[in-house]
Design a protein around this nucleic acid. Structure first.
Length: 897
DNA sequence: GAGTTTGAAACT
DNA sequence: CAGTTTCAAACTC
């Protein structure tokens, strides 16, 4: 608030107010010479600079300066000249180009009488003063110029002037790539000049820099920071603020015309700026920029938010969105009702599903093993439940988890429930996009702020499970961005039911989540792969077909408590386990001897010790797949067990609706499944970021025979195609917005065929309409695969077994395991049993290429196996990556065609 | 509900 | 790769 800069600024401003003498000064003359337009102003600016310059020197970016200048100009205009302001501002902007930025600022202040305003702002560096500025200017601008962007800029500028540029704000700007583009954009916006003027401004800025050197820059930076701070203040929740800030910044910089976004961005920026204001240091702002946002959020949470709201009114719908987003972020999932504007027409319903869909393969896998013997699939169910819980429809999903028998019924009910558009998660999806830019660091700070703010008060009971059976985490330090978090590990966003603190595993922070996931995957491609692999009947030795992929390392629990992951998953310990004194009731370590059937994988063990085990699992899986494929035909309607849906929810569910038919037909389901798996795990993220992946995936899918599936799907009504169990799948899709997204995404990504999407969406996901574009892209990869897997595996066994879901899961798991266990393997594996190996690879490559570099190819498979993120991706996709997704979708479509 | 135990995950 | 630390769930009181 009371940053040292402020006093400086005031001093500067006051002198500037004394423009007459300034003009006389040699500097003024010089400036006047430079720019014929604004001799007087220039002189003022020059004088004022000395004082201003000293602090601002830190920042060198001319653009920033321009922005401030523009902002200064605008400010005066607003208060004094509502109508005239624009013309003057333009002139001033031009002069700025010629004249150093500082001079411009002073001039503007002097002329406009902004100085007084700025002083007020400075005094009020806190939220109110700035808010008023912003709000008023905004309104004025809107009325006058009608350019939404300008108002935002103006406001931000005003705030910056008054408050001085908070260091954090600068940092934010810098950190977010502000320096180059953002500044330009701001300049444009400030100048209120569409495009033509902006260039001038930019040039002017650069010139200014040359003249004034760092001083101007620093000052400008301060101004920017001030703006940002103001914006930040306006922004309700700090965490969102950061994210938004980054996004907004980009928007402003990129698009002058994007008034709404720009406004929002300004708002966001302001919030971080508040924190920066406190710091006051100009130089560090840039560095701190990233950090600043969090601080800002934390410091000026309430004030900033309120202010933001005030300023927002003038802003377009975009602003509203922004506001909502922050709220969503703060509340995590509370905002569920509000849908991101991006989705537009799409009903919130779609969003909720995604969350539910978010169920990771891991969860599924886990569920699968559990399924047979034990009725409960804890992991999968929990995860699913969590996301679902967020949405209204959660309950239904959960039910399936707990009881297979219930699953069908629950599914039917859930379908109706899920359809409810009220699902909370939807909001998440919408908001995240803006936040996507937030850095991990920002996230941390943001987290802190959030925690402090109150987002996580919801901390419910520590119990990991919800009443529905859904899991919820209670993370306190991991921010739900590490595998410690069950939700994150399952690839599901944390739900409202979660008691986590500083949670970043929410759609709002989709980008952060994705980044974190990628990082974790980079370290361990199988990190998100299902931990439990089912070994079907083929492995007769083991009491339970399923085994923990990595094995446990129990030393004291003797694998008789839930400390043991194997026990927790209701699976026996295997040779891969390093447990001591294993007494696992589901199967002791020594008892398990997986039999290698015909299928032999080249097995490039993911990891040294466990390769053998994994390979064995894979072998089993491959065999299963074969069997399942045979069954597919017969079980076209593969009844997706509720549990399965739940588990797969995030990833698979969406797919299920679309895929069922295809699965039925295509024996290649395994391959498809794998690909889907990969997609689900990574693709969502990757897809969101890179459209190329999607295209690839789509191609692959087409190769896989997804088209056929689509046709089948289309032909067969969802209800018709799906048996009672199958119905559950569609219902799930409807229920969870994620599912819709997935389905859409899958449809788009896989085939990019509108038909398939339309049919699937329309039938399966009524609310998905709007979402299809953004969400679908991301989802496409992931959702499709799950479906295929589910459909294929499930179809084979689904109806036959009461535990059909489990069976399906189990079947899937093997495939997953194959993929997950040995991403590379998957490719290799394809050889004996099934062709699928190759297809998955393709998918993987595609996905991998997009997300990660060379490693992905090998890892991709693994990622495919990793189901966890798909659910997230949908959310994330919808939000942060929407644009990317859209683009990718477009690309995919074009390519597909 | 608080504290302890446990083992996975993360880090070095 | 092994050892240590961190973390959150599971468990106990």
């Amino acid at each position: 608030m009371d940053s040292p800069e402020i006093p400086k600024i005031k001093a500067n401003t006051s002198p500037s107010s004394d423009s007459p003498p300034v003009q006389e000064s040699p500097v003024f003359s010089y400036i006047s010479n430079l720019s014929p337009i604004q001799p007087v102003k220039a002189s003022h600016a020059v004088q004022g600079f000395p004082g201003l310059s000293s602090p601002p020197l830190v920042f060198t970016s001319p653009r920033i300066n321009t922005l401030r200048e523009t902002s200064f100009l605008k400010r005066p205009q607003y208060p004094q000249l509502s109508s005239v302001g624009k013309t003057k501002a333009h002139d001033e902007a031009k002069t700025f180009v010629d004249v150093p930025v500082d001079s411009k600022k002073h001039i503007t202040q002097l002329q406009m009488g902004l100085i007084t305003d700025t002083q007020d702002c400075e005094t009020n560096s806190s939220s109110e003063g700035v808010d008023e500025y912003l709000a008023d200017p905004m309104e004025m601008d809107c009325t006058n110029s009608c350019q939404s962007v300008n108002p935002c800029l103006k406001e931000s500028i005003n705030a910056s002037e008054s408050e001085a540029p908070p260091e954090k704000a600068k940092e934010d700007l810098d950190g977010k790539q502000f320096d180059p583009k953002p500044v330009k954009n701001k300049v444009h916006s400030d100048g209120e000049l569409p495009s033509s003027e902006c260039p001038k401004v930019g040039s002017g800025l650069s010139i200014d820099n040359a003249f004034n050197g760092e001083h101007h820059l620093g000052f400008h930076n301060q101004g920017i920071g001030g703006r940002q701070q103001d914006d930040c203040d306006h922004n309700p929740p700090s965490p969102p603020g950061r994210l938004q800030i980054g996004q907004v910044y980009e928007d402003c910089t990129e698009k002058v015309g994007g008034t709404s976004k720009g406004m929002i961005g300004n708002m966001i920026l302001h919030a971080p700026n508040k924190a920066k204001n406190d710091q006051g240091g100009m130089h560090r702002r840039c560095l701190q920029f990233e950090e600043a946002p969090p601080c800002a959020t934390g410091k000026g949470d309430s004030s900033s938010v309120e202010k933001v709201n005030n300023s927002e009114p003038p802003a377009s719908t975009a602003e509203l969105e922004i506001v909502q987003v922050p709220n969503a972020a703060t509340s995590k999932r509370q905002m569920g009702a509000s849908l991101p504007p991006r989705y537009g027409g799409t009903s919130p319903l779609t969003v909720p599903k995604p969350s539910g869909i978010g169920l990771h393969l891991n969860s599924i896998v886990n569920a699968a093993p559990v399924v047979r013997g034990a009725t409960t699939i804890k992991l999968a169910d929990h995860y699913i439940g969590v996301q679902v819980m967020k949405s209204s429809s959660v309950v239904n999903h959960h039910l399936p988890e707990n009881v297979r028998d219930e699953t069908e019924n629950s599914i039917a009910a859930s379908s109706s429930i899920t359809q409810s558009p009220d699902t909370v998660e939807f909001e998440r999806h919408g908001s995240p996009p803006e936040k996507s830019k937030v850095d991990s660091q920002n996230v941390d700070s943001y987290m802190e702020l959030n925690q402090s703010s109150s987002q996580k008060k919801r901390k419910k009971t520590p119990s990991s499970k919800d009443s529905d059976g859904c899991k919820r985490c209670n993370c306190k330090k991991s921010k739900c961005l590490k595998l410690y978090c069950d939700c994150f590990a399952a690839g599901v966003y944390c739900a409202e039911t979660c008691a986590c603190q500083g949670c970043f595993n929410i759609p709002d922070y989709e980008d952060t989540v994705l980044e974190t996931r990628q990082q974790i995957e980079a370290r361990n491609p199988l990190a998100f792969a299902p931990k439990i692999v089912q070994l079907e009947e083929e492995i007769q030795f083991t009491p339970a077909s399923a085994r923990h992929k990595r094995g446990c390392n129990c030393k004291k629990s003797m694998c008789l408590k839930k400390y043991c992951e194997c026990y927790q998953a209701n699976v026996g310990c295997s040779s891969g386990c390093r447990c001591d004194g294993c007494k696992n009731v589901y199967g002791r370590k020594g008892d398990f001897v997986p039999i290698e059937h015909g299928v032999i994988k080249d097995t490039i063990s993911d990891k040294a010790g466990k390769e053998t085990f994994d390979e064995k699992l894979e072998m089993v899986a491959t065999k299963k797949d074969i069997l399942s494929t045979d069954l597919y035909d017969s079980h076209n309607h593969t009844p997706l067990t509720p549990s399965f849906h739940c588990s797969d929810h995030a990833n698979n569910i969406p797919k299920s609706p679309c895929l069922p038919t295809s699965y039925l037909r295509s024996p290649e389901s395994d391959l498809t499944i794998i690909s889907s798996y990969e997609k689900s795990t990574r693709s969502p993220l990757r897809n969101s970021k890179t459209g190329g992946i999607l295209l690839e995936t789509s191609k692959e899918l087409s190769n896989m025979g997804y088209y056929h599936w689509r046709e089948d799907y289309d032909n067969i009504g969802v209800a018709d195609t799906f048996s009672t169990r199958y119905d559950a799948a569609p219902t799930t899709c409807h229920i969870t917005p994620l599912s819709d997204l997935y389905s859409k995404a899958s449809a788009s990504s896989t085939s990019s065929r509108s038909d398939w999407k339309n049919a699937s969406q329309a039938q399966l996901c009524p609310g998905s309409q709007g979402l299809s574009s953004s969400s679908s892209l991301h989802w496409c990869s992931s959702p499709v695969t799950p479906m295929a897997r589910l459909g294929g595996t499930k179809s084979s066994q689904g109806l036959d077994f009461d535990n059909g879901l489990y069976d399906f899961l189990q079947e899937e798991t093997p495939e997953i395991l194959k993929d997950s266990s040995n991403p590379i393997r998957s490719v290799k594996v394809s050889s004996p049993n099934k062709k699928r190996v190759s297809p998955p690879h393709n998918h993987n490559h595609e996905l991998g290429a997009s997300s990660s570099g060379s490693l992905r190819s090998g890892r991709k498979f693994i990622l495919k196996a990793v189901p966890s993120f798909p659910p997230l991706t949908p959310c994330s996709n919808s939000e942060g990556s929407n644009i990317i997704q859209n683009t990718s979708n477009l690309h995919n479509k074009g390519r597909k065609k």
